[in-house]
Protein backbone atom coordinates (compact mmCIF):
# COMPACT_ATOMS: atom_id res chain seq x y z
CA UNK A 1 0.00 0.00 0.00
CA UNK A 2 1.26 3.46 -0.75
CA UNK A 3 0.61 6.56 1.30
CA UNK A 4 -1.14 9.49 -0.35
CA UNK A 5 1.21 12.45 -0.36
CA UNK A 6 -0.39 15.87 0.15
CA UNK A 7 1.73 19.01 -0.22
CA UNK A 8 0.58 22.25 1.39
CA UNK A 9 2.15 25.03 -0.63
CA UNK A 10 1.64 28.66 -1.69
CA UNK A 11 4.60 30.47 -3.19
CA UNK A 12 4.13 33.53 -1.02
CA UNK A 13 5.22 33.30 2.59
CA UNK A 14 3.13 33.74 5.71
CA UNK A 15 -0.21 32.90 4.14
CA UNK A 16 -1.10 30.00 6.44
CA UNK A 17 0.65 26.85 5.15
CA UNK A 18 1.84 25.64 8.55
CA UNK A 19 -1.48 26.47 10.21
CA UNK A 20 -3.19 24.50 7.43
CA UNK A 21 -0.77 21.55 7.53
CA UNK A 22 -1.30 21.12 11.27
CA UNK A 23 -5.08 21.24 11.02
CA UNK A 24 -5.26 19.09 7.90
CA UNK A 25 -3.05 16.37 9.42
CA UNK A 26 -5.04 16.45 12.66
CA UNK A 27 -8.35 16.37 10.79
CA UNK A 28 -7.26 13.34 8.74
CA UNK A 29 -6.18 11.60 11.95
CA UNK A 30 -9.57 12.35 13.54
CA UNK A 31 -11.12 10.71 10.47
CA UNK A 32 -9.25 7.54 11.46
CA UNK A 33 -6.37 7.73 9.00
CA UNK A 34 -2.76 7.05 9.93
CA UNK A 35 -1.05 10.35 9.22
CA UNK A 36 2.42 11.87 9.28
CA UNK A 37 3.05 15.57 8.83
CA UNK A 38 6.52 16.66 7.70
CA UNK A 39 8.08 20.10 8.09
CA UNK A 40 10.07 20.82 4.90
CA UNK A 41 11.15 24.27 6.06
CA UNK A 42 14.83 23.45 6.62
CA UNK A 43 16.42 25.98 8.95
CA UNK A 44 13.10 27.41 10.09
CA UNK A 45 11.43 24.69 12.13
CA UNK A 46 7.90 25.80 13.11
CA UNK A 47 5.41 23.02 12.62
CA UNK A 48 6.51 21.45 15.94
CA UNK A 49 5.36 24.58 17.78
CA UNK A 50 2.00 24.67 16.03
CA UNK A 51 1.51 20.96 16.77
CA UNK A 52 2.64 21.49 20.37
CA UNK A 53 5.49 18.95 20.33
CA UNK A 54 8.53 21.27 20.24
CA UNK A 55 10.07 19.86 23.40
CA UNK A 56 9.94 16.30 22.15
CA UNK A 57 12.04 16.76 19.03
CA UNK A 58 15.11 14.55 19.23
CA UNK A 59 15.82 13.65 15.64
CA UNK A 60 14.66 15.49 12.54
CA UNK A 61 13.96 14.98 8.83
CA UNK A 62 17.59 15.59 7.78
CA UNK A 63 18.85 13.06 10.36
CA UNK A 64 16.65 10.41 8.72
CA UNK A 65 17.73 11.41 5.21
CA UNK A 66 21.39 11.12 6.25
CA UNK A 67 20.85 7.80 8.03
CA UNK A 68 21.67 9.24 11.46
CA UNK A 69 18.31 8.10 12.82
CA UNK A 70 15.60 5.72 11.74
CA UNK A 71 12.16 6.93 10.76
CA UNK A 72 10.75 5.30 13.89
CA UNK A 73 13.18 7.22 16.09
CA UNK A 74 12.47 10.54 14.44
CA UNK A 75 8.67 10.41 14.20
CA UNK A 76 7.07 12.19 17.14
CA UNK A 77 3.79 10.70 18.22
CA UNK A 78 1.05 13.26 18.77
CA UNK A 79 -0.15 13.60 22.38
CA UNK A 80 -3.81 13.64 21.43
CA UNK A 81 -4.12 11.20 18.53
CA UNK A 82 -2.23 7.94 18.49
CA UNK A 83 -2.37 7.62 14.69
CA UNK A 84 -0.75 11.04 14.09
CA UNK A 85 2.99 11.68 13.85
CA UNK A 86 5.19 14.71 13.28
CA UNK A 87 8.57 14.79 11.53
CA UNK A 88 10.36 18.01 12.45
CA UNK A 89 12.48 20.13 10.13
CA UNK A 90 16.18 20.34 10.73
CA UNK A 91 17.55 23.59 12.12
CA UNK A 92 20.67 23.30 9.97
CA UNK A 93 21.55 26.27 7.84
CA UNK A 94 22.65 23.98 5.05
CA UNK A 95 19.90 24.36 2.45
CA UNK A 96 21.24 21.35 0.53
CA UNK A 97 20.68 19.01 3.44
CA UNK A 98 17.67 17.51 1.67
CA UNK A 99 18.00 15.64 -1.60
CA UNK A 100 15.37 14.23 -3.92
CA UNK A 101 16.59 10.66 -3.31
CA UNK A 102 16.61 11.27 0.44
CA UNK A 103 13.06 12.58 0.46
CA UNK A 104 11.90 9.68 -1.71
CA UNK A 105 13.46 7.19 0.71
CA UNK A 106 11.66 8.74 3.69
CA UNK A 107 8.31 8.80 1.87
CA UNK A 108 8.75 5.18 0.77
CA UNK A 109 9.53 4.30 4.38
CA UNK A 110 6.24 5.85 5.43
CA UNK A 111 4.32 3.82 2.88
CA UNK A 112 5.97 0.68 4.25
CA UNK A 113 4.99 1.69 7.76
CA UNK A 114 1.36 1.75 6.71
CA UNK A 115 0.71 5.47 6.68
CA UNK A 116 -2.44 6.48 4.80
CA UNK A 117 -1.47 10.13 4.36
CA UNK A 118 1.72 12.16 4.48
CA UNK A 119 1.18 15.92 4.70
CA UNK A 120 4.18 17.97 3.50
CA UNK A 121 4.37 21.51 4.92
CA UNK A 122 6.26 23.43 2.22
CA UNK A 123 8.53 26.39 2.83
CA UNK A 124 7.65 29.63 1.04
CA UNK A 125 9.16 30.46 -2.33
CA UNK A 126 9.80 28.35 -5.40
CA UNK A 127 13.34 27.27 -4.53
CA UNK A 128 14.66 23.82 -3.74
CA UNK A 129 12.77 23.27 -0.48
CA UNK A 130 9.41 24.11 -2.05
CA UNK A 131 10.29 21.97 -5.07
CA UNK A 132 11.16 18.94 -2.92
CA UNK A 133 7.98 19.33 -0.87
CA UNK A 134 5.80 19.18 -3.98
CA UNK A 135 7.80 16.78 -6.16
CA UNK A 136 6.28 13.48 -4.97
CA UNK A 137 2.79 14.79 -4.22
CA UNK A 138 -0.48 13.16 -5.24
CA UNK A 139 -2.55 16.08 -3.92
CA UNK A 140 -1.71 19.73 -3.47
CA UNK A 141 -3.42 22.16 -1.16
CA UNK A 142 -2.58 25.60 -2.53
CA UNK A 143 -3.07 28.13 0.25
CA UNK A 144 -4.00 31.60 -0.96
CA UNK A 145 -4.99 34.85 0.76
CA UNK A 146 -7.43 37.28 -0.90
CA UNK A 147 -4.64 39.64 -1.80
CA UNK A 148 -2.93 40.43 -5.13
CA UNK A 149 0.57 39.07 -4.55
CA UNK A 150 -0.68 35.87 -2.96
CA UNK A 151 -3.09 35.19 -5.83
CA UNK A 152 -0.42 35.79 -8.45
CA UNK A 153 2.07 33.54 -6.63
CA UNK A 154 -0.47 30.77 -6.30
CA UNK A 155 -0.93 30.81 -10.07
CA UNK A 156 2.83 30.34 -10.42
CA UNK A 157 2.64 27.41 -8.03
CA UNK A 158 -0.29 25.84 -9.92
CA UNK A 159 1.89 26.02 -13.04
CA UNK A 160 4.81 24.32 -11.28
CA UNK A 161 2.55 21.59 -9.89
CA UNK A 162 1.42 20.85 -13.43
CA UNK A 163 4.94 20.62 -14.82
CA UNK A 164 7.69 20.14 -12.24
CA UNK A 165 6.47 17.15 -10.27
CA UNK A 166 7.02 13.43 -10.58
CA UNK A 167 3.44 12.87 -11.71
CA UNK A 168 3.82 15.53 -14.40
CA UNK A 169 7.18 14.17 -15.55
CA UNK A 170 5.97 10.58 -15.74
CA UNK A 171 2.61 11.57 -17.17
CA UNK A 172 0.76 9.37 -14.67
CA UNK A 173 -2.20 11.63 -14.08
CA UNK A 174 -2.25 15.16 -12.80
CA UNK A 175 -1.84 16.06 -9.17
CA UNK A 176 -5.21 16.73 -7.57
CA UNK A 177 -5.20 20.45 -6.88
CA UNK A 178 -7.18 21.97 -4.01
CA UNK A 179 -7.32 25.73 -3.66
CA UNK A 180 -7.74 26.87 -0.05
CA UNK A 181 -8.60 30.51 0.54
CA UNK A 182 -7.57 31.59 4.03
CA UNK A 183 -7.68 34.73 6.19
CA UNK A 184 -10.94 35.64 4.51
CA UNK A 185 -12.84 38.61 5.87
CA UNK A 186 -16.47 38.67 4.64
CA UNK A 187 -17.07 42.20 6.00
CA UNK A 188 -14.20 43.62 3.96
CA UNK A 189 -15.40 41.71 0.90
CA UNK A 190 -18.85 43.24 1.36
CA UNK A 191 -17.21 46.68 1.51
CA UNK A 192 -15.45 46.05 -1.77
CA UNK A 193 -11.94 46.19 -0.38
CA UNK A 194 -11.12 42.49 -0.45
CA UNK A 195 -11.26 39.99 -3.31
CA UNK A 196 -14.22 37.63 -2.97
CA UNK A 197 -14.23 33.83 -3.19
CA UNK A 198 -15.74 34.15 -6.65
CA UNK A 199 -13.10 36.69 -7.77
CA UNK A 200 -10.26 34.37 -6.75
CA UNK A 201 -11.93 31.37 -8.38
CA UNK A 202 -12.42 33.28 -11.60
CA UNK A 203 -8.88 34.63 -11.76
CA UNK A 204 -7.26 31.26 -11.12
CA UNK A 205 -9.82 29.20 -12.98
CA UNK A 206 -10.33 26.66 -10.20
CA UNK A 207 -12.86 26.28 -7.42
CA UNK A 208 -11.94 26.51 -3.76
CA UNK A 209 -11.94 23.41 -1.57
CA UNK A 210 -12.55 25.60 1.44
CA UNK A 211 -12.56 29.12 2.84
CA UNK A 212 -10.98 29.75 6.23
CA UNK A 213 -12.08 33.03 7.79
CA UNK A 214 -9.63 35.41 9.42
CA UNK A 215 -10.08 34.41 13.03
CA UNK A 216 -8.61 35.41 16.38
CA UNK A 217 -8.64 31.82 17.54
CA UNK A 218 -5.84 30.96 15.09
CA UNK A 219 -3.36 32.96 17.15
CA UNK A 220 -4.75 31.55 20.39
CA UNK A 221 -4.36 28.04 18.99
CA UNK A 222 -0.75 28.61 17.95
CA UNK A 223 -0.01 30.22 21.33
CA UNK A 224 -1.11 27.01 23.03
CA UNK A 225 0.28 24.55 20.51
CA UNK A 226 -3.12 23.08 19.65
CA UNK A 227 -4.07 22.95 15.94
CA UNK A 228 -7.05 25.26 15.44
CA UNK A 229 -9.17 22.46 13.98
CA UNK A 230 -9.45 21.17 17.55
CA UNK A 231 -11.17 24.41 18.59
CA UNK A 232 -14.59 23.23 17.50
CA UNK A 233 -16.20 26.47 18.63
CA UNK A 234 -14.13 28.68 16.36
CA UNK A 235 -15.19 29.53 12.79
CA UNK A 236 -11.66 28.75 11.55
CA UNK A 237 -11.69 25.35 13.28
CA UNK A 238 -15.07 24.48 11.79
CA UNK A 239 -14.02 25.69 8.35
CA UNK A 240 -10.92 23.45 8.54
CA UNK A 241 -13.11 20.46 9.54
CA UNK A 242 -15.30 21.09 6.49
CA UNK A 243 -12.22 21.35 4.27
CA UNK A 244 -10.79 18.03 5.46
CA UNK A 245 -14.16 16.36 4.88
CA UNK A 246 -14.23 17.73 1.32
CA UNK A 247 -10.69 16.51 0.64
CA UNK A 248 -11.90 13.09 1.78
CA UNK A 249 -14.68 13.30 -0.80
CA UNK A 250 -17.62 14.57 1.23
CA UNK A 251 -19.77 17.41 -0.08
CA UNK A 252 -20.30 20.29 2.30
CA UNK A 253 -21.55 23.82 1.64
CA UNK A 254 -19.21 26.73 2.31
CA UNK A 255 -19.71 28.47 5.65
CA UNK A 256 -18.44 31.75 7.13
CA UNK A 257 -18.24 33.45 3.74
CA UNK A 258 -21.00 35.98 4.34
CA UNK A 259 -21.19 38.78 6.84
CA UNK A 260 -22.72 37.30 9.97
CA UNK A 261 -26.32 38.42 10.26
CA UNK A 262 -26.92 40.03 13.60
CA UNK A 263 -29.56 38.48 15.82
CA UNK A 264 -32.51 40.45 17.11
CA UNK A 265 -30.91 41.33 20.44
CA UNK A 266 -27.65 42.35 18.82
CA UNK A 267 -29.53 44.58 16.41
CA UNK A 268 -31.51 46.22 19.18
CA UNK A 269 -28.79 46.49 21.78
CA UNK A 270 -25.72 46.62 19.56
CA UNK A 271 -22.62 44.48 19.87
Amino acid sequence: MTAEIIVVTSGKGGVGKTTTSASLATGLAIAGKKVAVIDFDVGLRNLDLIMGCERRVVYDFVNVVHGEATLKQALIKDKRHENLYVLAASQTRDKDALTQEGVEKVLDGMSEDGFDYVVCDSPAGIEKGAHLAMYFADHAVVVVNPEVSSVRDSDRILGLLASKTRRAERGDGAIKQHLLLTRYNPARVANGDMLSVKDVEEILGIDVVGVIPESEQVLAASNSGVPVILDAESPAGQAYSDTVARILGEERPLRFTDVAKKGFFQRVFGG
Binding site: V148, R152, D155, R156, V189, N191, G192, L195, S196, E202
Partner: peptide
Protein backbone atom coordinates in the same frame (compact mmCIF):
# COMPACT_ATOMS: atom_id res chain seq x y z
CA UNK B 1 -13.96 49.44 -5.11
CA UNK B 2 -10.30 48.47 -4.78
CA UNK B 3 -11.23 44.78 -4.96
CA UNK B 4 -12.55 45.37 -8.48
CA UNK B 5 -9.31 47.07 -9.45
CA UNK B 6 -7.33 44.18 -7.94
CA UNK B 7 -9.37 41.62 -9.83
CA UNK B 8 -8.88 43.36 -13.17
CA UNK B 9 -5.12 43.75 -12.66
CA UNK B 10 -4.79 40.10 -11.65
CA UNK B 11 -6.85 38.92 -14.59
CA UNK B 12 -4.44 40.59 -17.00
CA UNK B 13 -1.15 39.68 -15.34
CA UNK B 14 -2.16 36.08 -14.70
CA UNK B 15 -3.20 35.64 -18.33
CA UNK B 16 0.07 37.15 -19.50
CA UNK B 17 2.20 35.00 -17.22
CA UNK B 18 0.32 31.87 -18.21
CA UNK B 19 0.85 32.51 -21.89
CA UNK B 20 4.61 32.77 -21.49
CA UNK B 21 4.92 29.92 -18.99
CA UNK B 22 7.47 27.39 -20.10
Amino acid sequence: PTATVAKERLRIIVAQERSTRG
